[in-house]
Design a binder for these strands. Structure first.
Length: 674
RNA sequence: GCCGAUGUAGCUCAGUGGUAGAGCAGCUGUUUCGUAAACAGCAGGUCGGGGGUUCAAAUCCCCCCGUCGGCUCCA
């Protein structure tokens, strides 16, 4: 295989594939520290892997890499990477301007690992254009152009950009000097361009023939640029608004040295290798079929097994935490959705009604209305609250075609849903309980790092929210206290709350660094009202219960997509669809091998037999590729001694051990969820 | 949904106007083997779908669908 060269002589116990895989993780984790993510300002956590088998090797690899990189830094050693990347965006803009004198410029910030610039061009860019632009950039870098700053008054600057037919720059200056407030997603308001506008003065940076609205800072001259590479073109709406023109965005990356650039590209390649979509087919986990439809995953063979293991674990933990499991149908009468309000605020995500005997049914996009029915089946007393209903409920939502993405964005998915009904005085402890359970699940499943947001109201726009100030204050406090109680770092985001209440969102990061929302914990002031929920209090009067929606893993599909990437397909023993495979050396060992398999199965383990008439080498290779944790080789010696020769997925060979010991060892790891 | 790219065997890919190819996987046979690929043979594709141009289309054009990279949105 291609990564064979990575299996250095020094680590004979570690196979090339395993080492290559781990090296990717190492690089991934190392590249991220200290660099705040630009879009959130939050510390971004690298993906970690719990496998300790080869940690030492990774550390060694890491040291070697760091050294190699260190010796390469020369001219641009002291240059801040972000500054360099932003300057690279300017250089790219200059190259684009050379090619398209009529180009209109959007914004061009540095981002994690690189930069982009948005252009409004007379025609669409081709891959050949990218090459040409890159060529010109290299020429510009070589010609050592200096970055020069100057300041203009507001009117002067406006005239300057109007004259050059740069409407986007004009708009930026106009908006940002008028103190207009923009939405949280308007990247322009936060860009270097915007920072070029201050106190009525507008700063510009020029290098070569290109001058841009910009707050800087920049490198001194284009020489200090390091290694630059353009990656792709993509459409991007001006100021993130789909109603505004779509510009062409070119993404690029820039590093201090060619070595670092190569390292980065290699890392991207490694990330692609553990993309859940690839592993899904390689490991026989799930599939999509054109015949079935886009965004509708099918769990086959090992994937379904893996999923059921997770579901069993999930159900068990929920029972322990005092939840009651319920089942609800996949469709409901249209009036249900009218009452719940989904018809008015969620319809574009719902599939069209199904007409049966003059009654209209709709496929469920959420489970809540059904759980509310369970609550409403009879009058509830304050004594029986809190009530916690949970369900792995499969919902269907119409998602625009362009947004589908493997298991991470699908049209039919199963939420690990729950609705908690409680008294106001119980809210805080309920939220606490939810976080407690969430952490237990995440940790057991191998995730230890998250990005958490506490989404609260937009204080400048209170009219669009339901509920009283008092309720909001209480709900927000309950959420926040629970986060603090669990010492979880979080970011408070104003204006991100849903109209019916505040919420906590937890994101995880995928193999390519994209963030995906998983957990969500939302208070709801809306549905109890709409369905007229109440309980009879101590005072004999009716009271409105608080309601909490929460999904912890989010959707089984998304979660498993993330988990596949997290483990790179090498699942820990308790999750592995096949925990052990028995490999007879010759056909005459098949009977003994079958006995061993039966012993493993009797102990509740998932074991298989590879009795093909292949050589052990081939059997081992296939088992490795399937990332099966235990390979048990049996030949004459083992059959005689009632033993198995144990080979681990890491490549480590434990030699011959008594069958009973091995069964016990694997059973223990399984029971301990390792 | 929008911008761009792309779709050939189960998988990875070659084939740019003249009769559809390779490796792996599969099947059959031989081999019975000690830690990452035994050997030989066979079989497998309406070239994503539909329409068009042409004597002739995997190849050129149009429409649709899927996929990939982004944007908007989101569990």
């Amino acid at each position: 295989m291609g990564e064979g060269s990575l299996g250095g002589e020094s680590h004979p116990a570690v196979t090339a594939a395993e080492l290559g895989w781990n090296r990717a993780i190492t690089a991934f984790t190392v590249s991220k520290p200290r660099v705040p993510r630009r879009d959130t300002g939050l510390f971004c956590f690298g993906v970690h892997h719990g496998d300790t088998e080869t940690r030492r090797h990774r550390v060694k690899e890491l040291e070697n890499m760091a050294q190699a990189v260190e010796t390469e830094r020369k001219v641009n050693e002291g240059v801040d990477l972000r500054t360099m990347r932003h300057s690279a965006a300017h250089v790219m803009a200059e190259a684009v301007q050379q090619l398209f004198p009529d180009a209109r410029f959007g914004i061009g910030p540095a981002i994690e690992d690189g930069f982009y610039y948005d252009f409004d061009l007379p025609r669409t860019l081709t891959p050949d254009d990218l090459e040409e632009i890159e060529r010109r950039m290299k020429a510009i870098i070589k010609s050592d152009e200096r970055f020069e700053r100057r300041e203009l008054g507001r009117e002067e600057a406006l005239a300057y950009f109007r004259e050059r037919n740069q409407p986007y720059k004009v708009e930026l200056i106009e908006d940002l000097t008028s103190g207009e407030v923009h939405g949280a997603r308007d990247e322009a308001a936060d860009s270097p361009d915007a920072r070029g506008i201050r106190d009525g003065m507008v700063s510009l940076y020029r290098q070569g023939s290109f001058e841009d609205l910009c707050g800087g800072p920049h490198v001194e001259s284009t020489r200090q640029m390091g290694a630059v590479k353009l990656l792709r073109v993509a459409g991007a709406y001006w100021r993130g608004d789909e109603k505004r023109p779509q510009l062409q965005r070119i993404y690029g990356t820039a590093w201090h040295s060619q070595t670092e650039l190569d390292e980065y590209l290699w890392r991207l390649e490694e990330a692609r290798k553990r993309d859940h979509r690839r592993l899904g087919t390689d490991l026989g986990l799930f599939l999509f079929s054109d015949q079935v439809g886009a965004g509708l995953p099918i769990w086959g063979e090992h994937g379904a097994l893996l999923r059921s293991i997770i579901e069993d674990f999930w159900k068990e933990e929920h029972r322990k935490a005092g939840y009651q499991y319920v089942y609800s149908p996949h469709i409901g009468l249209i009036d249900l959705w009218r009452t719940s309000g989904h018809l008015s605020f969620y319809r574009e995500n719902m599939y069209a009604p199904i007409d049966m005997d003059g009654q209209e049914f709709m496929l469920k996009p959420m489970n809540c209305p059904f759980h509310l029915q369970v609550y409403k089946r009879r009058v509830r007393s304050y004594r029986e609250l809190p009530l916690r209903y949970n369900e792995l409920g499969t919902v269907y939502r119409y998602e625009p075609a362009g947004t589908l993405h493997g298991l991470l964005r699908v049209r039919g998915f199963t939420q690990d849903d729950s609705h908690i009904f409680c008294r106001p005085d119980q809210l805080e402890s309920e939220i606490n309980g939810v976080l407690e359970l969430a952490l237990k699940l995440w940790r057991t499943l191998g995730f230890h790092e998250y990005q958490i947001e506490l989404a609260v109201r937009d204080l400048n726009n209170l009219a669009k929210y339901l509920g009283t100030d008092e309720e909001w204050a209480q709900a927000e406090a309950a959420l926040e206290k629970a986060l603090i109680a669990h010492s979880l770092p979080y970011r408070r985001v104003e204006g991100e709350a849903v109209f019916y209440a505040p919420k906590i969102d937890i994101h995880l990061v995928d193999a390519l660094g994209r963030k995906w929302q998983c957990s969500t914990i939302q208070v709801d002031f809306n549905l109890p009202e709409r369905f007229d929920l109440y309980y009879v209090g101590e005072d004999g009067a009716r009271h409105r219960p608080f309601m909490v929606h929460r999904a912890l893993l989010g959707a089984l599909e998304r979660f498993m997509g993330l988990m596949i990437e997290h483990y790179g397909g090498a699942f820990p023993v308790w999750l592995a669809p096949v925990q052990a495979i028995v490999l007879p050396i010759a056909d005459r060992h098949n009977d003994y091998a079958a006995e061993v398999v039966q012993k493993l199965r009797d102990a509740g383990l998932r074991a298989e037999l590879d009795d093909r008439s292949e050589r052990v080498n081939a059997k081992i290779r296939d088992a490795q590729l399937q990332k099966i944790p235990y390979m048990l080789v049996v030949g004459d010696r083992e059959a005689e001694q009632n033993a198995v020769a144990v080979r681990l997925r890491s490549g480590e060979n434990l030699g011959a051990l008594p069958v009973e010991d091995v069964v016990q060892r694997i059973a223990r790891e399984n029971a301990e969820r390792k």
